[in-house]
């Protein structure tokens, strides 16, 4: 009984239902890629190393996350890249960043001619937290999924029982 209580307390103290996997979020800020890696539900993935891979599949650079799980990298040109992070225990996350996003002008000097680029940079900065939030929301296990999954399990085994009962009923 005591053991059961301990187990119950342990389960109560656990965090609520979140998906558990490595997630990667990357966006472009004026020719520079800015991203963060995190374990959905578990916190920031600090000190993780990843690779920047170009369209031909060659690794062009390696990046490391800081203590907040964030990283920055300025690629030599504005082409499409694949960023791939992997931890030693079998977590892996990939993110693509398109040529359209990367092709923006490099960080602009504050001259009138670069107003548009400044605006885009500012917008990208403002939109980033929002996009990260949407990304995190998507990875959450929803209650409807959980209930649906349990329903699926009983349905599958119900069908199995039904079929085997029919097979038995026949002479």
């Amino acid at each position: 009984m005591k053991a059961l209580l301990i187990a119950a307390v342990l389960i109560m103290s656990a965090s609520p239902a979140w998906a558990h996997k490595l997630k990667l979020f990357v966006s472009a800020e004026g020719g520079e890629m800015v991203g963060s890696a995190y374990f959905a539900g578990g916190g920031k993935a600090a000190g993780l190393s990843g690779h920047v891979i170009d369209a031909a599949g060659t690794v062009i650079a390696s990046v490391h996350t800081d203590e907040n799980g964030a990283f920055r990298y300025t690629p030599p040109d504005g082409r499409a890249y694949l960023i791939r992070f992997e931890s030693g225990d079998g977590h892996m996350a990939e993110a693509r960043i398109g040529a359209a996003a990367m092709a923006e002008a490099p960080p602009p000097a504050l001259t009138p001619a670069s107003d548009m680029a400044t605006l885009e940079l500012a917008l990208a900065r403002q939109l980033r937290p929002l996009r990260e939030q949407i990304d995190a929301l998507e990875s959450r296990a929803r209650l409807s999924d959980i209930i649906g999954g349990i329903g699926f399990i009983f349905g599958i085994f119900g069908c199995f029982a039904w079929l085997s009962a029919r097979r038995r009923g026949q002479p």
């Binding site: 342990l10 656990a14 965090s15 239902a17 558990h20 578990g42 600090a46 977590h91």
Partner: peptide
């Protein structure tokens, strides 16, 4: 699998 325990950086 939805009952998580934080361990170090991950869970």
């Amino acid at each position: 699998s939805l009952v998580h325990f934080p361990v170090g950086l991950t869970s």
